[in-house]
């Protein structure tokens, strides 16, 4: 049964939509990257766009609104040895309240083999008022795999209180966890999330993870890159840019600047 079966346009909602999108990138033997698997499902449509050089590019297109309460979306991307894949999205993902009162889930699973590279650069996730979403992102990298991963969360649309948003980002390199971070925001989250130790009333929060094996011997230098943003070498061949900003535009600006400096 395909995605969307449970959500009907006449409003008869049963249990939400389940949909999985899959991407596999493979070196084509001529210095480029082919995509033997490119399967969208229901609200998760995938489009291949023009890449540059050895890199294949994919855009995730939201074909419906959501995720709504009760929905369970998953995206799986696998980059094989030596392949290069860049994934973006056509627009922000907006978590919305659904008729199903349960939480929505969005699970992203990324694996990159030796010599492969993944640029995972989606548009922000916006937590709309009344929504309830838990996002997990798990990245498994081989020892010489390269990664740039951006995660941006905007709490509420303009002038709106956010919904409940939980997220966990885990990055492993050669089987060793180099980053494991959880954030909970919005109504129902443990108290203090909006306070001076966590977000201090700012409405946008983001992370940029860069993994390169050369960081083992040449780690990045820790530095402050904005009012509330820092570049930090992790315990492993990875660097994290962590940023908190008043809004999504200012957040993107500081993450872009930090990425440009990391080169």
């Amino acid at each position: 049964m395909g995605a969307g079966a449970a959500r009907r346009v006449d409003g008869v909602t049963v249990s939400g939509v389940r949909a999985t999108a899959r991407i596999r990138a493979r070196g084509d033997g001529r210095g480029g990257t082919s995509l033997p698997v490119l399967e969208g499902e229901g609200p998760l449509a995938l489009r291949r766009t023009r890449g540059s050089g050895a890199e294949a590019r994919v855009v995730l297109v939201g074909a419906m609104s959501g995720p709504l309460g009760g929905d369970h979306f998953a995206v799986e991307a696998e980059v094989e040895e030596g392949a290069r894949l860049r994934v973006g999205s056509a627009a922000a993902t907006i978590a919305l309240p659904g008729q199903a009162k349960s939480e929505a889930r969005y699970d992203v699973r990324l694996t990159v083999a030796d010599g492969g590279e993944l640029l995972w650069l989606p548009e922000p996730l916006i937590s709309a008022g009344g929504s309830e979403l838990y996002v997990t992102t798990r990245v498994e990298l081989a020892a010489t795999a390269r990664l740039v991963l951006r995660e941006e969360q905007v709490l509420g649309r303009v002038g709106e209180e956010p919904g409940r948003l939980g997220s966990r980002l885990t990055v492993r390199v050669a089987g060793r966890t180099v980053l494991d971070q959880e954030l909970a925001c919005g109504p129902g989250a443990p108290a203090g999330w909006d306070g001076p130790a966590v977000l201090a009333g700012r409405r946008a929060v983001g992370q940029l993870v860069v993994v390169r094996s050369k960081f083992t011997t040449h780690p990045v230098t820790a530095r402050i890159v904005g009012e509330y943003a820092a570049v930090m070498p992790l315990a492993g061949p990875a660097a994290l840019v962590s940023a908190v900003a008043p809004d999504g535009l200012l957040l993107r600006r500081v993450l872009d600047e930090a990425l440009a400096e990391l080169g």
Partner: peptide
């Protein structure tokens, strides 16, 4: 160890880097 919580306070981490400088 994956069952351990991983709750984070972004401003604690960023602030610690500012403070160290």
């Amino acid at each position: 160890v994956d069952v351990l919580p991983a709750a984070s306070g972004p401003l604690l981490e960023i602030g610690a880097e500012a403070h160290a400088g």
